[in-house]
């Protein structure tokens, strides 16, 4: 995908997005733009509102105001179960592997939302462990395998906008490395990715841009090439 092409197409745009859980006002006017084929991170401390931002995009918060454009379409009034159908794949922070389903059932669970998703064979090629354990109960897998499964099942659906929440959290370095390779492959395929991360070292070489969050707002936008110059800002907000 050429850079001209990328700049042309806005896959996701949040404008003045506010989100609430009951009475608590969590997001205070978020503005984010992600072009097709970009990999963008949301960085911030625990509790800064990164997960809530992804959940607000999925219409999984109590209430939201402002604007959420997905693929050029305003989705503020779209019911939660129709967001995925716009080509969105969501990988939640807690992974959400189903205990009552085996690995293959977990993998086959999310319905296809667009054509062009990966086939079961391609997925097993990418994650050979999942093939070996395909008849095991989903939650019997190791943490790393569960994370692979949570990623793999949204790749099958053909979603072209992936929202990934802390996929490296608590995983061994080899698995983190494997996830990095997978993300590179997905980026090369032209998928658009929003990555919520704690692990800055993991995110830095992969991302085109970074948004820094604090107290439910975006405090800084950093291009990949500006990273070196802005390390002190990052330090302030992340304590890396």
């Amino acid at each position: 995908m050429t850079s001209a092409n990328r700049a042309d197409y806005e896959q996701l745009r949040l404008a003045d997005l506010h989100a609430f859980y009951g009475e608590s006002h969590i997001l205070h006017g978020i503005d984010i733009k992600v072009n097709r084929g970009e990999l963008v991170t949301l960085l911030g401390r625990n509790g800064s509102g990164r997960t809530t931002t992804l959940r607000a995009i999925m219409n999984m918060v109590g209430k939201r105001t402002g604007s959420v454009m997905i693929n050029g379409r305003e989705t503020l009034d779209v019911p939660a179960h129709q967001i995925a159908r716009l080509g969105v794949g969501y990988c939640p922070e807690e992974r959400g592997i189903f205990a009552s389903l085996n690995v293959e059932e977990n993998l086959m669970l999310p319905p296809t939302v667009r054509s062009g998703g990966m086939s079961l064979d391609e997925i097993y090629d990418m994650f050979p462990n999942l093939y070996e354990r395909r008849t095991s109960q989903g939650t019997r897998l190791s943490g790393g395998e569960q994370q692979m499964l949570a990623m793999a099942r949204i790749l099958r659906t053909g979603a072209n906008l992936l929202l990934l929440d802390e996929i490296t959290e608590g995983l061994a370095p080899v698995i983190v490395q494997k996830l990095g390779e997978v993300l590179t492959q997905l980026k090369n395929k032209g998928l658009t990715i929003v990555l919520v991360e704690q692990n800055f070292r993991f995110a830095a070489p992969l991302a085109d841009r970074h948004y820094l969050m604090e107290h439910g707002t975006i405090v800084e936008e950093i291009q990949a090439h500006e990273l070196q110059d802005k390390m002190d800002i990052l330090n302030t907000y992340l304590g890396v």
Partner: peptide
């Protein structure tokens, strides 16, 4: 069956099922 998998998964975590595009209501 696949329908049954929806039912089992919906029993466990209906919110995530919605996020996958299943009409849980």
């Amino acid at each position: 069956t696949r329908l049954g998998a929806y039912l089992r998964a919906g029993t466990e975590n209906p919110q995530l099922m919605q996020a996958f595009g299943i009409n849980v209501p």
